[in-house]
């Protein structure tokens, strides 16, 4: 059985179909990539899966149980957590406190005092020496790590990563990609990641789903998806198609 599944999931904003009848499935231990041009509806899809927005239609299932309609904070306790494309640390709390808040809501999947778990997660993401800094003092890459740490501290089963690698320099991007792989391999968390940085998503993902105008237009291994004509047209554009030829 798939771990997380969406069935005909849809979200309409007025006349705009931001997410349009999307079916997808995430298997345990998998990294699923989600790609698509700007405004394709990727972030909205995450908001539906994480409970930040109620769907207009369709449903989200966690291990076969319907979870759509539940608010975000409850889904966190059940093991579904998201990060934000534009990081949103609590600016008035220290790095450690930021993560501790999240560690309080592991829903019984983790043991030990929250503060200790928060420390462990910060070590894991490489912020072990910045626990007392305020988020504003971190670099962008640092704040992305903090965003990751906060999500990880809830001991998730499904982690929804919204453009974690985007916007940092290539060296940082490499380490963040390695971190995402470690999250799957060492912490046994299934990951869905939205990503614009193609090398990262191609090397990390087991499978890739392509969205365009709210619709799923392709699905498969990275190698298959890249060759898909509709994908080349919709997303990669002429320039990329030309470069491949």
């Amino acid at each position: 059985m798939s771990l997380l599944e969406t069935r005909a999931l849809s979200k309409h904003f007025g006349g705009l179909r931001a997410v349009d009848a999307v079916d997808l499935a995430l298997h345990p231990g998998e990294i699923l990539g989600v790609i698509g041009p700007n405004g394709a509806g990727k972030t909205t899809l995450f908001s539906l899966m994480a409970g930040s927005l109620p769907p207009s239609d369709g449903e989200v299932l966690l291990e076969g149980q319907r979870i759509s309609g539940q608010p975000a904070h409850r889904l966190v306790r059940r093991g579904v957590v998201r990060t934000h494309q534009i990081v949103r640390p609590f600016p008035n709390l220290s790095v450690l406190e930021n993560v501790t808040v999240a560690a309080l809501h592991a829903g019984g999947r983790a043991e030990g005092p929250p503060r200790e778990r928060a420390r462990e997660v910060l070590e894991f993401v490489g912020l072990g020496d910045r626990t007392h800094a305020v988020p504003g003092a971190l670099t962008l890459a640092g704040r992305k790590r903090l965003e990751l740490a906060r999500a990880l501290a809830t001991a998730p089963r499904v982690l929804l990563l919204d453009e974690v690698v985007a916007g940092v320099n290539p060296a940082e991007a490499m380490t963040l990609a390695a971190l995402i792989r470690a999250i799957r391999d060492r912490r046994h968390v299934a990951v869905i990641m939205i990503e614009h940085v193609m090398p990262a998503v191609m090397s990390l993902s087991d499978r890739v789903v392509v969205l365009d105008h709210g619709k799923k237009i392709a699905e498969g291994t990275p190698a298959e998806v890249v060759k898909h004509p509709q994908v080349i047209e919709a997303y990669l554009g002429k320039g990329h198609a030309g470069a491949q030829a």
């Binding site: 608010p71 975000a72 600016p91 906060r150």
Partner: peptide, 14 residues
């Protein structure tokens, strides 16, 4: 106080 939505996203019920 800092961010209700972000708080909900890490499990805090405002």
């Amino acid at each position: 106080k800092a961010d209700v939505d972000a708080a909900a996203d890490v499990g805090v019920s405002a």
